[in-house]
């Protein structure tokens, strides 16, 4: 994955062919489902299901690995913070205390440890849907499908523009940083004074903003010259249509969502850390 530029990964998996709007809905429903539970069974099931979907999406293993590593590091830092600041929150949620380890008078409770585990799994289960959405959706197709469901094309076109100009803006930023460095105004680690570094970093903003303002005017004029926004409808080069496979996927997603709400309301209420 390049650090700058589009994130789309070429491929022809099931999710690459899926309508971007269905993918957006899947992401939203998935997130709501994750938010509903604080239950190890639900989190484990969602992590497993998510991993399976990621496997289906054929996103390169390297990208998945990096993202999971980032979330694991985040979870470790989060867990340390929880143990420092509110070590007894898990026992409050569970309503009882069981001492797991006694470290010179500082007790670590089973409930606290399991709470951190459940929370970490919850964060991890949030990831797959976002990844599928980010890496298998081509920006132009997303813009087109937003337009197809009734969002004005002027608004939808913004997504095209963002990904079109992201690489240019980042190249410009790098060029400006190098130009400033050439005249001795750097913000890298080689600059000895900390405040000088901060000042130099903020100095780049002035040329960057000025060039952005000029760029906005130039692009606006170019687009208006080609009558952007004149007609009520427009056609799309990267058009996508709503197929019966999309309809079926949407039906499955909604059914599963309702099923999860039902389980939440009847069986798996509240905090639970035991598997059975």
């Amino acid at each position: 994955m390049s650090k700058f530029g589009s994130l789309y990964v070429e491929g022809d998996s099931f999710f690459h062919k899926m309508n971007p709007v269905v993918k957006t809905l899947m992401f939203i429903f998935w997130s709501i489902t994750v938010f509903m539970y604080l239950d190890i069974r639900a989190s484990l099931f969602l992590v497993a299901l998510g991993s399976f979907l990621l496997y289906l999406s054929k996103i390169p293993y390297k990208i998945i690995k990096n993202l999971f590593l980032a979330v694991i590091i985040f979870n470790i830092i989060n867990a340390i913070f929880i143990f420092i600041i509110s070590p007894e929150f898990g026992t409050t949620l569970a309503g009882h205390k069981t001492v797991l380890i006694d470290l010179f008078g500082y007790q670590i409770y089973t409930e606290s440890v399991m709470y951190v585990v459940v929370l970490s799994l919850k964060y991890m289960s949030l990831l797959p849907a976002a990844m599928i959405f980010i890496f298998t959706t081509y920006p132009s197709q997303f813009a087109c499908s937003l337009n197809r469901i009734g969002i004005p094309y002027k608004f939808a076109y913004a997504f095209n523009l963002i990904f079109r100009y992201l690489p240019e803006v980042s190249i410009e930023f790098k060029t400006m940083a190098k130009a400033q460095a050439a005249r001795g105004v750097t913000f890298g680690k080689d600059e000895p004074s900390f405040w000088r570094r901060v000042k130099n970093l903020f100095n780049i903003i002035i040329p960057l903003m000025n060039s952005a303002l000029e760029r906005i005017d130039a692009i606006t004029v170019a687009m208006e010259l080609r009558s952007f926004g004149k007609k009520r409808v427009r056609t799309w080069y990267n058009g996508v249509s709503f197929t019966w496979i999309d309809a079926m996927s949407l039906l499955i997603i909604i059914t599963m969502f309702i099923f999860f709400i039902y389980i939440r309301c009847t069986l798996w209420k509240g905090f639970n850390y035991s598997l059975f």
């Binding site: 913004a158 803006v169 930023f173 692009i219 606006t220």
Partner: peptide, 30 residues
């Protein structure tokens, strides 16, 4: 105003904000 200029402004602004947010000088953990 739902104009071409507004669409372009939001796009360029978001791209610029998105890219520059990746750059920073660390002053502490995270």
């Amino acid at each position: 105003s739902f104009s071409t200029k507004m669409v372009v402004t939001v796009s360029i602004g978001a791209a610029l904000y998105g890219v520059t947010s990746l750059v920073g000088i660390p002053i502490g953990p995270n």
